[in-house]
Amino acid sequence: MSKLEDILQQEVLAEITEVTKAAEVRAAEIIKAAQEQAEALKATRQKQLEAERAAAERRAESAAELVLNQARIQARGQVVDRVKAEALKALASLQGQPGYDEILTKLAEEALQGLGQAEAVVVNPDDAAKIEPWAKAKGLELRTDAGLRYGVRLVAPGGKSMVQNSLPERLERAWDSLSAKAAKAIWG
Protein backbone atom coordinates (compact mmCIF):
# COMPACT_ATOMS: atom_id res chain seq x y z
CA MET A 1 0.00 0.00 0.00
CA SER A 2 2.71 2.22 0.44
CA LYS A 3 3.17 2.54 -3.27
CA LEU A 4 -0.42 3.35 -3.77
CA GLU A 5 -0.21 5.84 -1.01
CA ASP A 6 2.82 7.37 -2.59
CA ILE A 7 1.09 7.59 -5.95
CA LEU A 8 -2.02 9.11 -4.43
CA GLN A 9 0.03 11.48 -2.40
CA GLN A 10 1.93 12.54 -5.51
CA GLU A 11 -1.31 13.02 -7.43
CA VAL A 12 -2.81 15.00 -4.58
CA LEU A 13 0.37 17.07 -4.35
CA ALA A 14 0.37 17.61 -8.10
CA GLU A 15 -3.29 18.60 -7.97
CA ILE A 16 -2.64 20.91 -5.02
CA THR A 17 0.32 22.42 -6.87
CA GLU A 18 -1.80 22.87 -9.99
CA VAL A 19 -4.66 24.45 -8.01
CA THR A 20 -2.16 26.63 -6.16
CA LYS A 21 -0.54 27.74 -9.43
CA ALA A 22 -3.97 28.47 -10.93
CA ALA A 23 -4.93 30.40 -7.80
CA GLU A 24 -1.66 32.33 -7.92
CA VAL A 25 -2.20 33.15 -11.62
CA ARG A 26 -5.78 34.21 -10.88
CA ALA A 27 -4.64 36.23 -7.86
CA ALA A 28 -1.95 37.91 -10.02
CA GLU A 29 -4.61 38.73 -12.65
CA ILE A 30 -6.91 40.17 -9.97
CA ILE A 31 -4.06 42.21 -8.47
CA LYS A 32 -3.02 43.44 -11.93
CA ALA A 33 -6.62 44.39 -12.79
CA ALA A 34 -6.99 46.15 -9.43
CA GLN A 35 -3.72 48.03 -9.97
CA GLU A 36 -4.80 49.06 -13.49
CA GLN A 37 -8.16 50.17 -12.16
CA ALA A 38 -6.45 52.08 -9.34
CA GLU A 39 -4.08 53.77 -11.82
CA ALA A 40 -7.01 54.68 -14.10
CA LEU A 41 -8.92 56.08 -11.13
CA LYS A 42 -5.82 57.95 -9.99
CA ALA A 43 -5.32 59.42 -13.50
CA THR A 44 -8.99 60.45 -13.66
CA ARG A 45 -8.75 62.06 -10.24
CA GLN A 46 -5.54 63.87 -11.23
CA LYS A 47 -7.24 65.19 -14.37
CA GLN A 48 -10.24 66.33 -12.31
CA LEU A 49 -7.98 68.01 -9.76
CA GLU A 50 -5.95 69.65 -12.52
CA ALA A 51 -9.14 70.90 -14.18
CA GLU A 52 -10.42 72.22 -10.84
CA ARG A 53 -7.08 73.90 -10.16
CA ALA A 54 -7.03 75.48 -13.62
CA ALA A 55 -10.63 76.68 -13.20
CA ALA A 56 -9.82 78.13 -9.76
CA GLU A 57 -6.75 79.83 -11.24
CA ARG A 58 -8.85 81.34 -14.06
CA ARG A 59 -11.44 82.56 -11.53
CA ALA A 60 -8.70 84.12 -9.40
CA GLU A 61 -7.13 85.79 -12.45
CA SER A 62 -10.54 87.12 -13.53
CA ALA A 63 -11.24 88.45 -10.04
CA ALA A 64 -7.81 90.07 -9.91
CA GLU A 65 -8.34 91.62 -13.35
CA LEU A 66 -11.74 92.94 -12.24
CA VAL A 67 -10.24 94.49 -9.09
CA LEU A 68 -7.42 95.99 -11.16
CA ASN A 69 -9.87 97.44 -13.71
CA GLN A 70 -12.02 98.89 -10.95
CA ALA A 71 -8.94 100.49 -9.38
CA ARG A 72 -7.95 101.93 -12.77
CA ILE A 73 -11.44 103.32 -13.34
CA GLN A 74 -11.52 104.81 -9.86
CA ALA A 75 -8.07 106.35 -10.31
CA ARG A 76 -9.08 107.78 -13.68
CA GLY A 77 -12.24 109.19 -12.16
CA GLN A 78 -10.23 110.82 -9.39
CA VAL A 79 -7.79 112.32 -11.89
CA VAL A 80 -10.62 113.66 -14.06
CA ASP A 81 -12.30 115.10 -10.94
CA ARG A 82 -9.01 116.78 -10.05
CA VAL A 83 -8.75 118.19 -13.58
CA LYS A 84 -12.26 119.62 -13.22
CA ALA A 85 -11.44 121.12 -9.82
CA GLU A 86 -8.30 122.71 -11.28
CA ALA A 87 -10.32 124.07 -14.21
CA LEU A 88 -12.82 125.61 -11.81
CA LYS A 89 -9.95 127.07 -9.79
CA ALA A 90 -8.48 128.53 -12.99
CA LEU A 91 -11.88 130.06 -13.84
CA ALA A 92 -12.03 131.60 -10.36
CA SER A 93 -8.59 133.14 -10.84
CA LEU A 94 -9.81 134.92 -13.99
CA GLN A 95 -11.91 137.31 -11.91
CA GLY A 96 -8.87 139.32 -10.87
CA GLN A 97 -7.05 139.12 -14.20
CA PRO A 98 -6.87 141.86 -16.84
CA GLY A 99 -9.42 141.23 -19.56
CA TYR A 100 -11.99 139.70 -17.20
CA ASP A 101 -14.36 142.60 -17.88
CA GLU A 102 -14.18 141.67 -21.61
CA ILE A 103 -15.09 138.07 -20.73
CA LEU A 104 -18.10 139.31 -18.74
CA THR A 105 -19.14 141.52 -21.64
CA LYS A 106 -18.95 138.60 -24.09
CA LEU A 107 -20.97 136.42 -21.70
CA ALA A 108 -23.56 139.22 -21.42
CA GLU A 109 -23.73 139.65 -25.21
CA GLU A 110 -24.31 135.89 -25.69
CA ALA A 111 -27.00 135.92 -23.00
CA LEU A 112 -28.69 138.92 -24.66
CA GLN A 113 -28.70 137.10 -28.01
CA GLY A 114 -30.34 134.11 -26.34
CA LEU A 115 -32.94 136.21 -24.52
CA GLY A 116 -33.68 138.79 -27.21
CA GLN A 117 -34.69 141.70 -24.96
CA ALA A 118 -33.64 142.39 -21.39
CA GLU A 119 -34.45 144.90 -18.68
CA ALA A 120 -31.61 144.06 -16.30
CA VAL A 121 -28.24 142.41 -16.04
CA VAL A 122 -27.34 140.61 -12.81
CA VAL A 123 -23.75 139.95 -11.71
CA ASN A 124 -21.80 139.18 -8.58
CA PRO A 125 -21.24 142.34 -6.50
CA ASP A 126 -17.49 142.01 -7.19
CA ASP A 127 -18.21 142.21 -10.95
CA ALA A 128 -20.65 145.17 -10.91
CA ALA A 129 -18.05 147.80 -11.79
CA LYS A 130 -16.68 145.62 -14.62
CA ILE A 131 -20.06 145.21 -16.41
CA GLU A 132 -21.52 148.65 -15.58
CA PRO A 133 -20.30 150.37 -18.80
CA TRP A 134 -21.88 147.62 -20.93
CA ALA A 135 -25.15 147.76 -18.94
CA LYS A 136 -25.37 151.55 -19.36
CA ALA A 137 -24.62 151.29 -23.09
CA LYS A 138 -27.48 148.76 -23.47
CA GLY A 139 -29.84 150.74 -21.22
CA LEU A 140 -30.11 147.91 -18.70
CA GLU A 141 -30.57 148.06 -14.98
CA LEU A 142 -27.59 146.65 -13.06
CA ARG A 143 -28.42 144.24 -10.22
CA THR A 144 -26.20 142.10 -8.04
CA ASP A 145 -26.48 138.57 -6.68
CA ALA A 146 -23.71 137.21 -4.43
CA GLY A 147 -24.63 133.66 -5.48
CA LEU A 148 -23.81 134.31 -9.15
CA ARG A 149 -20.14 133.63 -9.78
CA TYR A 150 -18.03 134.34 -12.88
CA GLY A 151 -20.88 135.24 -15.21
CA VAL A 152 -24.07 137.17 -15.88
CA ARG A 153 -27.82 136.72 -15.78
CA LEU A 154 -30.04 138.76 -18.06
CA VAL A 155 -33.65 139.30 -17.02
CA ALA A 156 -36.36 139.77 -19.66
CA PRO A 157 -38.84 142.66 -19.40
CA GLY A 158 -41.33 141.85 -16.66
CA GLY A 159 -38.89 139.39 -15.06
CA LYS A 160 -40.75 136.35 -16.45
CA SER A 161 -37.73 134.80 -18.08
CA MET A 162 -33.99 135.00 -17.83
CA VAL A 163 -30.81 133.63 -19.34
CA GLN A 164 -27.76 132.91 -17.24
CA ASN A 165 -24.34 132.58 -18.82
CA SER A 166 -21.45 131.84 -16.47
CA LEU A 167 -18.08 130.22 -16.86
CA PRO A 168 -18.79 127.38 -14.36
CA GLU A 169 -22.11 126.58 -16.13
CA ARG A 170 -20.39 126.53 -19.50
CA LEU A 171 -17.73 124.23 -18.12
CA GLU A 172 -20.46 121.97 -16.69
CA ARG A 173 -22.33 121.86 -20.04
CA ALA A 174 -19.15 121.01 -21.93
CA TRP A 175 -17.69 118.73 -19.26
CA ASP A 176 -18.58 115.39 -20.88
CA SER A 177 -16.72 116.33 -24.03
CA LEU A 178 -13.88 118.04 -22.18
CA SER A 179 -13.39 115.20 -19.71
CA ALA A 180 -13.18 112.69 -22.57
CA LYS A 181 -10.52 114.87 -24.22
CA ALA A 182 -8.67 115.25 -20.91
CA ALA A 183 -8.74 111.48 -20.35
CA LYS A 184 -7.48 110.88 -23.87
CA ALA A 185 -4.69 113.41 -23.38
CA ILE A 186 -3.67 111.81 -20.08
CA TRP A 187 -4.00 108.11 -20.93
CA GLY A 188 -3.96 108.13 -24.71
Rank of each mutant, 00 (worst) to 15 (best):
D81F: 02
G116M: 07
A146N: 03
A174S: 15
D145V: 03
A28D: 04
A128G: 04
A43K: 06
A135V: 14
K89W: 04
L68E: 15
R143D: 04
L4R: 15
K3L: 12
Q117Y: 04
T105A: 01
R82G: 10
Q46M: 10
P157V: 07
V155P: 04
K3F: 09
L148D: 06
K89G: 05
R149E: 07
R149M: 08
K130L: 05
Q10C: 03
E132F: 09
S2G: 02
A71Y: 14
M1L: 08
K89L: 02
K136L: 00
V12P: 04
V123M: 12
L8M: 13
R45F: 12
E15V: 15
K106F: 06
I73Y: 01
I31G: 00
E109S: 01
A85T: 02
R82S: 09
A34I: 06
K138N: 10
A85V: 06
A60F: 11
A108Y: 05
V25Y: 04
L49T: 09
D127W: 10
A60R: 13
V123Q: 06
R45C: 02
P168I: 12
A118W: 02
R58V: 14
A183K: 06
Q46T: 06
K184S: 02
L94N: 01
A137C: 08
D101G: 06
L41K: 15
A129W: 13
I186D: 00
A33C: 14
T20M: 02
Q37V: 15
K138A: 12
E119M: 03
T44H: 07
A92S: 06
L115D: 10
T144L: 13
K84V: 00
W134T: 09
R26D: 10
V121D: 05
I7V: 02
L107P: 14
E65W: 13
L104A: 06
